[in-house]
Simulated scan of single mutants.
Amino acid sequence: MKLNQRQCFIILFAIVILLSALQLTVGGSSINWWMPNALEKDIIWDIRVPRMLLTWLIASALGLAGAVMQLLLRNPLAEPGITGVSGCAALVTIACLYFGWLPAFSFGLPALALVGGLLGVSLLMVLAGRRASPTRVILAGVAIATMSSAAMGLLLYLAPNPFAFQEWAFWHMGSLANKSWHSVMLALPGIVLAFPIVWLGRRFLYALTLSEETVATMGFNVARYRNWMLLAVALLTTASVVAVGVIGFVGLLAPHAVRLLGFNHPKYVLWLSPVTAILLLISFDTLVQLMSTARELPVGILAALVGAPLLIVLLVRERNSHA
């Protein structure tokens, strides 16, 4: 018997709750959950609970951003990391820290990083063209991501002291370690603003399974709705980058996980992707905490190790389908 969207959502959400409980129990210190002392209470409420909530926020942002980009560009390979949006937001963030424009704890940092995300989206649309093929979009995104990565590498190389270089480089890898309530508050505004935008434009995204000419005859202002959706993607991506750094491939994996469950309709892909993204990122984060290493592995590295092979598989499948 095939599950409907609500049943699938309930099952996925139940799994997320179980994995979140597991995520709370892992860490460098063992905790007596029945009768915690003062130090253990501080660890729970100041370290582990913010980390769990931040995982939910970042994963839902990346999953929704990936789904919006794939529906908007009609490209199953589109994703904020691959298309260079994350790289541009990260570049502006590092530049702000490097030149001392804003401190790392400033709430103005997401606003400036948003400019970088919007710049990345705009460059992608200009380079790919109005009726770009999936290959052209990926190539344009790779070019943008490479340029932003090279610029970030230059700033890191020219860092005034080795400690700044190490801290910024570790942040760029994407990590949920040592996060606090402040990181949650940095991510929250962009996500809160983006979700209503996507909700209001959801019917436009559903209709994009048809041609743009047909969508226009249905009463949608295609250019206006596209710009609003790109703004939402930039807000979601910026929120993630500013709070935890660059975590790639989660936005790519989540919509495909929904499709693998048998839900191919844009409505299901759009609203189940945040849930599957939370499931993926919690699994990745729990795994890196369970690994026995001298220093916790950034979750962005593990996500890339899983996501890059999947991207290769998807590219091969697309090539074979065209052949």
Rank of each mutant, 00 (worst) to 15 (best):
P162Y: 04
M1S: 14
T238W: 00
P189R: 06
A254F: 09
E212D: 14
S183H: 09
K2P: 15
V126D: 06
A177E: 10
L305A: 09
P274G: 08
R224D: 12
S133W: 01
G81L: 03
R224K: 13
I197N: 12
L112A: 13
A159L: 12
L272V: 12
E213T: 10
M291W: 06
A128E: 12
I15A: 15
R48A: 06
Q7I: 02
R203F: 11
S30P: 04
L261A: 14
M218N: 08
A113V: 02
Y206F: 10
A132E: 08
L158K: 11
L124E: 07
I197M: 13
P298R: 00
A194F: 11
L297G: 03
T293V: 05
L230P: 01
N37E: 12
R136C: 00
G63M: 01
A234T: 03
N178K: 10
A194V: 09
N161L: 06
V246P: 00
V241G: 11
A150T: 12
L112K: 00
L290V: 00
L290S: 03
F107T: 08
N320V: 12
S321E: 13
Y206I: 09
F99S: 14
A164H: 08
W199S: 04
I17K: 01
G63A: 06
H182K: 06
T217M: 06
I282V: 13
G117L: 01
G153M: 01
G248W: 02
M52R: 07
L57C: 08
V269K: 00
L305V: 07
R295H: 03
F249I: 06
S20L: 10
L176K: 11
V121A: 15
N161S: 12
L252P: 09
S273Q: 03
A304C: 03
N32W: 02
G28Q: 05
Y98K: 04
R203H: 10
I301Q: 12
R48K: 13
G66I: 01
A128P: 00
I278S: 14
A38K: 07
P110D: 05
W181H: 08
L270D: 06
W181A: 13
V306K: 04
A132H: 10
Q289R: 13
P36T: 03
R319V: 11
L314F: 15
G262K: 00
A169G: 01
